[in-house]
Design a protein around this nucleic acid. Structure first.
Length: 415
RNA sequence: GGCCCAUUCGUCUAGUGGCCUAGGACACCGCCCUCUCACGGCGGCGGCACGGGUUCGAAUCCCGUAUGGGCCUCCA
């Protein structure tokens, strides 16, 4: 039998990375089993809805490479259907009116239990479950009612969601039973915390997909990282392309305990993906990112610098500072060794051809003649030319900058 | 407070009673490479929350404690 899952964000703002991790699991599961993955916006609480959120959510998912089957649906669209079912429940004695609202009548004895695909057997005593409101006095059905109803109507086979829903599950199961519906398989995946063990929030760093996009992470790297938060393939595999994740994912290997979001590991992983790109691909993604950030440096030059920075930075957000000297004037400190800069300028004036290897040869000769170690001699030259003690390869940078600019920067220090 | 859940290096995790002298990755430290930074190579540091059981044998099973989290809204 084919599986069917749903991703169910609420449109209250940008897509939170924790929700996305849950969606990644849903998506991987569905794609692996050649099933369906729906996108349902849970907008039952109209007061918290943010207008642009619905578009934003889709844009974020598309960017990450997560697609969905069929049109986007809205929880509110099934409100009428839910109201009818609520009335039926009242007629059958499974629910009752209470000050204009309708409450679900929980069974008063026994237990409600399910075998969670992630956490195993879980059970609750019915007598402890409150009779929850399923339709508000203003007629809008509540989340805990519409959600199982939609799952029933959509014939969802696996409900894969955050474990903050564990406590809602017994009530939703009782509702589904009262409705005569078949139960889906439940899989409650652990939450993601910040380094302090608290819920991941702004003060921890990037939290929405848009944040990560703006920081210059690659979608494939982000997905790889997210998939590994609470799931693993084996004891050693960490870098996995999308198709490999799809092939290898399984709910059985999702762990039940919460995970901490490790930004450093994400950075490392993104660096791995960045370095693995073909040079032209790298340049292409870099240009796209710069454009998104509103930085309009000449594309041709950006392309030329790409091979010089590819192995040096872990995310595109580091590019502007690292490569700025290619595009803008530098402002080196006063205390540079003017002598060696002038000597370098003199030497470089006659280098032919103006290419990294010839430049390197010439500067090494200079260092040699001055009786200095290369690292010692090149330091002031680097600062004079790039404005920083840390930069892409010096000789390649000089080549790219061109003789004129290079000499100008070197002599500017001497002046 | 009640109910439910979780607990292996700092972090992500492997581990389903003997393969564990607990493995890998990130981070960190050291060395090598080296024009800086990074990459790469080599090495190091570091963990089964605690206490009881069960068993010939427990990170793995059971009970308790502690800690953390979730839910207990006419929020989702």
């Amino acid at each position: 039998m084919s599986v069917k899952v749903r991703m169910a964000p609420s449109p209250t703002g940008f897509l939170h990375i924790g929700s996305v991790r849950t969606f990644v699991f849903n998506w991987l599961f569905a794609r692996q089993r050649a099933g369906e993955c729906l996108l349902r916006i849970e907008n039952t609480d109209t007061s918290r809805e943010v207008a642009e959120a619905v578009d934003q959510i889709q844009e974020s998912l598309r960017w990450l490479g997560i697609d969905w089957d069929g049109p986007v649906t809205f929880q509110l669209d099934t409100a009428e259907r839910a109201r009818e079912l609520a009335r039926e429940l009242v007629e059958k004695g499974h629910a009752y009116e209470d000050e204009g609202a309708i409450r679900f009548r929980q069974p008063k004895e026994g237990v409600v239990a399910w075998d969670d695909a992630v956490r195993g057997h879980i059970e609750f005593r019915n007598e402890l479950l409150p009779d929850l409101v399923i339709v508000r006095s203003d007629g809008r059905p509540t989340y805990n009612f519409v959600s199982p109803v939609d799952d029933m109507v959509d014939r969802i086979t696996h409900v894969i969601r955050g474990d903050d829903h564990v406590s809602n599950t017994p009530s939703q199961i009782n509702i589904l039973r009262a409705l005569g519906a078949e139960l889906p398989v439940y899989a409650h995946v652990p939450m993601i915390n910040g380094a302090d063990g608290r819920k991941l929030s702004k003060r921890h760093g990037a939290i929405s997909v848009e944040n990560f996009r703006a920081d210059g992470y690659l979608p494939a790297a982000l997905m790889n990282f997210l998939a590994l938060l609470g799931w693993s393939f084996d004891d050693r595999t960490t870098i996995m392309a999308k198709h490999e994740l799809v092939e290898r994912f399984s709910l059985e290997r999702v762990v039940p305990s919460p995970a901490t979001f490790d930004y450093q590991k994400l950075d490392w992983m993104n660096g791995v993906y960045l370095r693995d790109l073909q040079p032209d691909e790298y340049a292409h993604f870099l240009c796209k990112w710069l454009e998104e950030q509103g930085i309009d440096w000449p594309q041709e030059m950006v392309h030329a610098t790409a091979p010089l920075v590819q192995e040096k930075i872990e995310k595109f957000a580091q590019y502007p500072d690292f490569a700025r000297f290619f595009f803008e004037p530098v402002d080196p400190p006063e205390d540079l060794d003017a002598g060696i800069c002038q000597a370098a300028a003199d030497r470089l004036a006659g280098v032919e051809p103006w290419a990294a290897t010839a430049i390197e040869e010439s500067l090494r000769d200079l260092a040699d003649e001055l009786g200095q170690k290369p690292r010692q001699a090149f330091a002031p030259i680097r600062v004079a030319v790039t404005g920083s003690k840390v930069s892409p390869g010096l000789f390649e940078s000089l080549e790219l900058l061109g003789r004129e600019t290079s000499l100008a920067r070197l002599t500017a220090v001497a002046a």
